[in-house]
Amino acid sequence: MDAAVRELSYSQAIQEAMAIAMEADERVILMGEDIGVYGGAFQVTGDLVERFGPDRVMDTPISELGGAGVAVGAAVTGLRPIFEFQFSDFATLGMEQIVNQAAKMRFMLGGEVSVPVVMRFPAGSGTGAAAQHSQSLEAWLAHVPGLKVIQPATPHDVKGMLLAAVADPDPVMIFEHKLLYKMKGPVPEGHYTVPIGKAEVRREGRDLTIVATSIMVHKALEAAETLAGEGIDIEVIDLRTIRPIDRETVIESVKKTSRLMCVYEAVKTLGIGAEISAMIAESEAFDYLDAPIVRLGGAETPIPYNPELEKAAVPQVPGIVAAARDLAKGVR
């Protein structure tokens, strides 16, 4: 019997996943700044403190480095912490514990321990919060062996991937675009998982592959619908996980369409698009390419405050439409 499916927002889906994990396993605790009675800066934890109490929904001091380290230490010794960075930008304050400790501890100790910690990072621009509260830093963490890095794009996926992350024995970093929090979509009730490391073809097409992450998946789908009216048939892949990358899905798609475009919000240079492009260049799909690969990423600037500048700093639907049209038609 299939579980009932309701419409939930992305943030409700996260909250439901955390509640299910906590119900199922006493060892699961939530940690973060103002996640208790305040409900989290983006109301993701909401009223969970009333249900599970302050010992399991722990407000931490504003101590990202120490807090992340406490989560790591607790994970190694028997708990299953889900640690919320209030903004992904604050990962900069916790990097030591994420990169030097969480990612490497199992390796350094020759496999004697696992570090089953989940860290959540509200990320991305579009909220007018300017340069220090709007970044997309996922590629930083994806550069570190030992971590798994995911960017679920839908309410369905974020619930299933968070539940997969809690069950995962290794550290999983979840980047959640803040503009997705209010987005609604179908979410099954109860427990289910969406595997880490598997991309999803969101729209099948013949003329061009767009590999997108997080909120850019939705922008790419919108662009694809527009171009469908012009007879251009675009395949949209939601990468979902950026470490480990699902090579097979991307390579197979490019072999089919012979054209590749990468769309992501993080700064374009040295981002996930570079990795996907290099991966195709190194693969058998290279021989199938009919045109150079195109990357659309964030501008080489900090995120500005002014709303028009802010929009201009990251890919938007009209830009994706124009670039995809050019690529599909071979105009360079």
């Binding site: 605790i29 380290g69 406490v70 790591v72 230490g73 010794t77 400790q101």
Partner: peptide, 14 residues
Amino acid sequence: IPIAVGAALSAKRL
């Protein structure tokens, strides 16, 4: 140091 605090949190909670 923070890892030790995390281990102590586990000890208390468990």
